[in-house]
Design a binder for these strands. Structure first.
Lengths: 291, 291
DNA sequence: GATGATTACGGACGCCGTAAGCATA
DNA sequence: TATGCTTACGGCGTCCGTAATCATC
């Protein structure tokens, strides 16, 4: 087994076909077919059913390991690439609901200390943040998610990347004005189990806040006003940090009761970051409310 | 970068020489030299200083990742190897200070349910337990270590292996009868900072209980009577779980004060274990005091 | 019948071994 | 001077591409 094989397995799982995987990897269909066949022979397990191509349980298992292995390979390569190099550019990724004021304030501090560093800020999805930092296309990522209080977001293997918590904010259920539950002082999630949600895969907690949540509308984007507009329009509720709903027209924000969850923002970077990256992390942490 | 390269890096780090690494890997010295040279060129970093061969910071970093990557590769291979196979043999590894009564009791239950399974029990070191389970040479390992109360032992990447806590026991400082501190009701570790320890790398907590602990005697073994004999003989103290000192001649066991630490026993296995392995784990957990 | 995986075969590249070269303790 | 890493070079194996075959929708 070599990394090449794991890359092939993962590509096939992602693409759902040998042809697609070959395109992704820059190989021919035949090459991928041979790789998988050889690997299956080596491991003594069929990894994929064919026609349609679908991973067997063994294939799924291997793919799960492969993803983590290749992620760590990326991290290793990136760490070495950044060793003892003074980066001239700081690339920051920010998730849509990560507290934006933090970045602005931290950047101001960075500007004072290192005025020459060029800073690029880019909006990212939480799902791609880890891969981007691992691959070295981002130096720092602000990621948000929903978790139990004081619990880190499980973004990657513990310790693979450097991460620290910045802010935890209460969660609210966003409802349209006039909603029957809008006058409550708090809402438990199970109360809304059968109520419609605006499913928003691009935002944390809005994927499916309740297991088996129904959703008449799926919003495949991460634009907060659009989401709030959909909620105000009566297409469903949404689970959001308090700040996201402040002052939104037609929206009532009711604090979440049970389960006890919070919206958490963390900063992510390679371990052993230096220079501007390190300073940026320090400035962010200094402004975060979690020590 | 391929797994072959990572194996080479790790072998060189372990062996401290290209020659030794080559022997370990079944290659010639020249092959290892070429592999490292090629990898250094690819990564753009010198990984080892030569004469003597010693990892550079970049090499150390890479080796750390390599170890975790290769461990996960082993786990992946082992998981697939055990998929849907009814193992006829259950191989159990037990660390010297892991509560032995648990194994006996759990085995009795297993015997009733699956009388035909052949069981092999083997003494192991905590340091090798993870590697053995990952490599598939052990089905179940009982590992012990010292940690803060209710904190898991950090044996491997979280989630890589299935692990669960069985027992937490108070720690005591083992002192020879007549020791000036022997009449105390508890001892803080810092009190013993400058006192001699019997350094026992093969047992948990006895490696160097206090950072920078001095030790006139190093016992390179894991034989409890021998260790207790050394303590009784006045060669130093030792940090042990209560049960290990019960009734030992010439020994006084004084409860540990600060820091608050416990001796913890965990069971380790591949995730998704089936058959006898799964039953054994269940039986062990049922008899453990931690739910 | 078309899409897409498998198999056959050939060529090229990469990797390792042998052997000579070279630096350091 | 000896140990041990580096370099040169050659052969073998592996891996991928082309192309024909086969299976499934």
């Amino acid at each position: 087994m070599e990394l090449r094989d794991l890359r092939a397995v993962l590509a096939v799982v992602r693409a759902g076909s040998f042809t697609g995987a070959a395109a992704e990897l820059g190989y021919t269909q035949s090459a991928v077919s041979q790789q998988i066949a050889t690997l299956e022979a080596e491991l003594g397990h069929r990894l994929f059913d064919r026609r349609p191509v679908r991973p067997t349980p063994a294939g799924e298992r291997l793919a799960e390991h492969a993803a983590r292995i290749l992620l760590r390979v990326d991290v290793a390569r990136s760490e070495l690439a950044h060793l003892a190099q003074a980066p001239v550019e700081l690339r920051v990724g920010v998730c849509p609901l990560a507290v934006p004021g933090l970045v602005a304030a931290a950047l101001r501090e960075l500007r004072v200390e290192q005025p020459t560093v060029r800073v690029t800020i880019r909006s990212i999805d939480a799902s791609s943040a880890v891969a981007e930092v691992a691959a070295g296309t981002l130096d720092v990522a602000l990621v948000d998610g929903i978790t139990a209080p004081d619990n880190p977001l499980a973004l990657a293997d513990a310790g693979l990347l450097a991460s620290s918590a910045l802010v935890e904010a209460p969660l609210v259920v966003a409802l349209p004005v006039g909603h029957p539950l809008a006058r409550r002082t708090s809402i438990d999630l199970d109360v809304l189990a059968d109520a419609p949600w605006v499913i928003t895969p691009g935002l944390p907690g809005s994927g499916a806040p309740v297991p088996g949540a129904t959703g008449s509308v799926v919003y495949d984007g991460n634009d907060l006003p659009t989401l709030l507009g959909l909620v105000a329009g009566g297409h469903g509720s949404a689970l959001l940090p308090t700040s996201a709903c402040a002052g939104a027209p037609g929206i009532v924000a009711v604090p979440l009761g049970r389960p006890t969850l919070v919206h958490r923002t963390e900063v992510l970077a390679l371990r052993g970051a230096t220079g501007a990256t390190r300073r940026m992390i320090g400035a962010l942490r200094a402004r975060g409310s979690i020590t």
